[in-house]
Amino acid sequence: MKHLLGTKDLTKEEILTILDMAAPMKDIILREIKKVPTLRGKIIATLFYEPSTRTKNSFELAAKFMSADTVSISVATSAVQKGESLRDTVYTLEAMGVDAIVIRHSRNGAPHYLASFSKASIVNGGDGQNEHPSQALLDLFTIREHKGRIEGLKVLILGDIMHSRVAKSNIYALSKLGAEVIVSGPPTLIPEHVKEYAEVCYDVDAAIRKADVVNVLRLQLERQQAGLITSLQDYHATYGLTKERVAKGKDDLLILHPGPMNRGIEIDEEVAYSRQSVIQEQVSNGVAVRMAIYYLLLGGAQA
C-alpha cells in the first residue's frame, strides 16, 4: 500500500489487514512504555487546511508511538497564508525528507491530487464531503471489538449523510465487509445515490429498532445555511438519538459518534455517556488504527 486515499479504493482484504494490525497496536498504547522503534528515522507531516483537534492529534500521537518524527503544518501560521500552492507545499515537505503526508482539505479529491505527483505516501485525513477513511476504519475496529464481527450486522448511520465524509467512508467499508447498512435522517440530507450501497429508512424509530449498531453523525452546523433543516430543535425532536429512542432499540445497541458532538442536537448527553456508548473508546482506537495505517504504508520495503 502506498497511499490511503479512501475506503472506496480498498479491498476487503486490505481493510481486514488494517483491522487485524490495529489490535497489537492497541496493546502498545495500553502499556506503560507506549513506543515501538518501527518507524525510527521516518518523518510524517500533518497538513491540515481545516480545523481539527482529535484527528490531527491522533495522527501525530500515532506517529510518535511508532518512533517517527512529526512536522505539523497549520495553515494559519504557514506560508499558505502567503499564497503558497498545495503543490509547492508538498514539494517543500518532500525536500525536507518527509515520508508521509496526512492531509485534511475542504476540497474533494485534494489527497488524490497530491498522490498523483508526490513521492511521499499520502494519507487522507478528510477531504471535503468525500472521504475520511481513518475514521471509518476506527469505527469498524471498534464495532468488531464489541460485536466480534462486521459481517451480517445491521449498522445504522444516522443524520446528515449528504455532507458527511465519515458516512461515505463508513458505507463503502461496511458494505465491503458484508454489513447491512441502513441510513436515516432528514430526506433533504440523504442523497439519492446512497441507495446503491444502503437501505434508506426515513422512519428513525423503525431504523433504530432494527439496528445492532448506530453511528450518529455530527450535524455540520457550518454547512447548514441552505435551509435543508428547519431548526435545531426540530432536528433534535425528529432525528436526534434521544434516551427514549435508544430505550426502544436493542438492549445491546452499540452507539458511536465520530465527534465532536453537538449535545442536545444529534445526540443526548445521557446517551453519549451511557453503557452502550463507545464514543470515548473510539478516540483511543483511533490512535491504534492510525499506527496500523502507518505501519502498512511505511513499515516494510517499498514496492
Binding site: 494490525m21 497496536m25 518501527t38 513499515g299 516494510g300 520495503a301 514496492a303
Partner: peptide, 10 residues
C-alpha cells in the same frame, strides 16, 4: 524490516 519485503503481519 525495510529489507524484508512488504509488511510482515504483526
Amino acid at each position: 524490516l525495510s529489507t524484508l519485503g512488504p509488511n510482515p503481519i504483526v
